[in-house]
């Protein structure tokens, strides 16, 4: 049950994000056939099982993803997007699915330092890439002013698209720590907030930039 003492929730949100990061499986606990649930001892055995028992089905593939600095070895269906793998295999819910066609930015993560739309990237193509999600940003003291200002300025309403906006903002600030108002709107121009908070993000980010420039972080 969620119990919220007013004003105390940055800490608890950070703790929940840290817990989600800690719970990311580094390798599958049990390898099971996704079709018949038979348990296999290795990926190789699973592949053999597929060839023998499900020859007409698409076999799962093995991939190692570097997510938030951790290498996670996964066995996934080849068609899964990065967004789906983050949720279904790694338990990270921060990248959200809204349009599922690269037209809304809600699923934004940072890949090799650049913003990337995780709904539009196959996870099986991400081996060797460094992937960063909102959960990581949530636990980094450096970025707390950004999250804090978003919350202070209500740069969110229902909150569903918000992590995507924050990742786009973080990617911008990584590259350009003191952006102009126009540069901010440009960097966020691939994100759609259905609640219509579009005009509110610049102010939150500019306030955060000024706090971050002073080296301020929030102790949570």
């Amino acid at each position: 049950m969620e119990t919220t003492r007013a004003g105390a929730s940055l800490k608890s949100a950070g703790e929940q994000a840290a817990a989600a990061l800690a719970a990311m499986p580094r390798r599958p606990e049990v390898i099971r056939c996704p079709i018949c649930k038979r348990q296999c001892l290795s990926f190789e055995e699973l592949s053999e099982h597929y060839a023998a028992e499900h020859p007409d089905s698409v076999a799962p593939t093995a991939v190692t993803l570097n997510v938030n600095g951790l290498n996670c070895s996964l066995i996934i269906e080849p068609h899964l997007t990065l967004k789906q793998v983050l949720q279904l295999h790694l338990g990270l819910t921060g990248a959200k699915e809204m349009c599922d066609r690269g037209a809304c930015g809600s699923c934004t993560v940072i890949m090799d330092g650049n913003p990337a739309l995780s709904c539009n990237i196959l996870a099986s193509e991400c081996e060797g890439r460094s992937i960063e999600t909102i959960e990581m940003v949530a636990v980094m003291p450096k970025w707390r002013p950004l999250i804090d200002e978003y919350c202070k300025w209500d740069a969110m309403q229902c909150g569903y698209c918000t992590p995507g906006y924050l990742m786009a903002a973080k990617a911008l600030l990584d590259r350009n720590p003191s952006p102009t108002e126009y540069e901010i709107r440009e960097a966020l121009s691939g994100n759609i907030c259905i609640c219509g908070t579009q005009p509110r993000h610049s102010q939150a980010i500019l306030e955060a930039v000024s706090r971050m420039a002073k080296g301020e972080t929030i102790n949570a």
Binding site: N114, P115, I121, A168
Partner: peptide, 9 residues
């Protein structure tokens, strides 16, 4: 073209 994040890929 498209949007900032999509242009990256």
């Amino acid at each position: 073209a498209s949007s900032p994040a999509l242009r990256e890929t």
